[in-house]
Structure formats: C-alpha cells, structure tokens
Measured scan of single mutants.
Amino acid sequence: TLFEALYDYEARTEDDLSFHKGEKFQILNSSEGDWWEVRSLTTGETGYIPSPYLAPV
C-alpha cells in the first residue's frame, strides 16, 4: 500500500525524512508506533516520518 503526505514536514533529527504535501511513500516498517520508516517515491530517500501526516493512496 502506498501512502501520500497530507502536510509538509521538516526533519528534526538525522533519522527523520523531510517531505512535501502530496509526496508518495512506500512503507518499510510501521511497527515502531507513530513513526514509520518509509522510502520516498519522489527522492528515493529513506527515513522516519510521523504516520499522522500520511493517508493511504
């Protein structure tokens, strides 16, 4: 399942991933609570992002 960003987000740590509203992601790991490890389909980068900022496509 692909997810889309509902809002912009600016990374706060080196493990976070900055992204823009509308960017699409592949979920790599969603078992860590509200922070999911994802791969951006736009940039190819991986990192953690807050799951409340995402919605299924």
Rank of each mutant, 00 (worst) to 15 (best):
T1D: 12
T1L: 13
T1Y: 11
T1M: 14
L2K: 04
L2A: 05
L2P: 04
L2N: 04
L2I: 15
F3Y: 15
E4R: 05
A5D: 00
L6N: 04
L6R: 06
L6A: 05
Y7F: 14
Y7A: 10
D8G: 06
D8S: 08
Y9K: 03
Y9G: 04
Y9L: 04
E10Y: 09
A11K: 09
A11N: 05
A11Y: 04
A11F: 03
R12N: 12
R12P: 14
R12Y: 09
R12K: 13
T13R: 15
T13M: 11
E14V: 10
E14S: 12
D15V: 13
D15N: 14
L17S: 02
S18Q: 04
S18V: 04
S18E: 03
S18Y: 04
S18K: 05
F19K: 00
F19E: 00
F19Y: 06
H20A: 12
K21P: 02
K21C: 06
K21G: 02
G22R: 01
G22A: 04
G22Q: 02
E23F: 03
K24P: 03
K24Q: 13
K24S: 05
F25I: 01
F25P: 00
F25A: 00
I27N: 01
L28T: 04
N29M: 07
N29G: 10
N29V: 07
S30R: 11
S30A: 12
S30V: 13
S31E: 12
E32K: 14
G33R: 11
G33S: 13
G33P: 14
G33H: 11
D34F: 15
D34W: 13
D34V: 10
D34C: 14
D34M: 12
D34Q: 10
W35Y: 12
W35S: 07
W36Q: 02
W36K: 01
E37P: 01
E37I: 11
E37L: 15
V38T: 00
R39W: 07
R39I: 14
R39H: 07
R39T: 10
S40E: 03
S40V: 07
S40N: 13
L41E: 09
T42V: 11
T42R: 12
T42F: 09
T42G: 07
T42S: 13
T43P: 00
G44Q: 06
E45L: 14
T46H: 10
T46D: 03
T46G: 02
T46C: 07
G47N: 01
G47T: 03
G47S: 02
G47C: 03
G47I: 03
G47E: 00
G47R: 03
G47Q: 03
Y48F: 13
I49M: 04
I49N: 00
I49W: 00
P50C: 11
P50E: 07
P50Q: 12
S51P: 10
S51N: 09
P52A: 15
P52C: 14
Y53S: 08
Y53K: 03
L54D: 01
L54V: 11
L54E: 03
A55D: 05
A55K: 14
V57L: 10
